[in-house]
Computed example of a mutant assay.
Amino acid sequence: MTPEQLAAARDRTLTDVIGGGLRVLFCGINPGLMSAHLGQHFARPGNRFWPALHASGFTPRRFAPAEQYEMLALGLGITNVAGRATARADELTADELVEGGRRLTAKVEEYRPAWLAVLGVTAYRVAFADKHARVGPQERTIGATRIWALPSPSGLNAHWSPAALAEEFARLREAADHGAAEVPAPADGRGR
């Protein structure tokens, strides 16, 4: 991929991988330039979304970004808080995240997934005006949809190792598989 191709992808949007009856709708912050160029969510090789999804037991094998629509058969989907592609998520304005939170709420009300998993607790805090949110299940719901704030799987998020990221994804998977009544405790106290 050339620098010119990446530059041309700036401000593009991606099509959601979404449908009714989802167990979990994963929500990234916004598409990166490589993802926008390829039309595939979490396409940058250093992004840890696809490895964490598999390591946590959500998928039977590690999917490639080009296989994103296969997630629907597993009751999983993907969308973003903010639609426009940028090189880094910190290029987004707070207003874009707040507006994205409104659009995301409408999307969740329409499709009614069991869980909404926002991949980036800082983006979640801004989009939903919850400055004290931590990684894990949230008190807030959108209708009957429960919300889980996950760490960003970006390779730039060095605070979370691949193993710790997979553990948090696995906590969500357990809650999604067994209902919201019992949410497993984090193994190491992260996010609490």
Rank of each mutant, 00 (worst) to 15 (best):
T2V: 08
A8K: 14
R12I: 06
T15R: 12
D16V: 04
L25E: 07
C27A: 14
C27Q: 10
P31L: 14
G32H: 15
S35Q: 11
G39T: 08
F42A: 11
F42T: 03
R44T: 12
R44F: 04
G46D: 14
H54M: 09
A55M: 06
P65D: 01
L72N: 00
L74F: 02
R84P: 02
A87W: 09
R88A: 12
R88S: 10
L92E: 03
L92V: 04
A94C: 03
E96H: 03
L97T: 08
V98H: 00
G101W: 09
T105Y: 03
A106D: 15
K107C: 03
A114W: 03
W115H: 07
L116R: 07
L119D: 11
G120T: 04
T122L: 13
Y124K: 04
F128N: 07
A129Q: 12
R134F: 01
R134T: 11
R134V: 09
V135D: 01
V135N: 02
Q138A: 09
E139M: 11
E139L: 14
A144W: 01
T145N: 04
R146M: 06
W148Y: 07
A149D: 01
L150Q: 09
P153A: 11
L156F: 01
H159V: 09
E168K: 03
R173G: 05
R173I: 04
R173C: 09
A181T: 05
A187D: 08
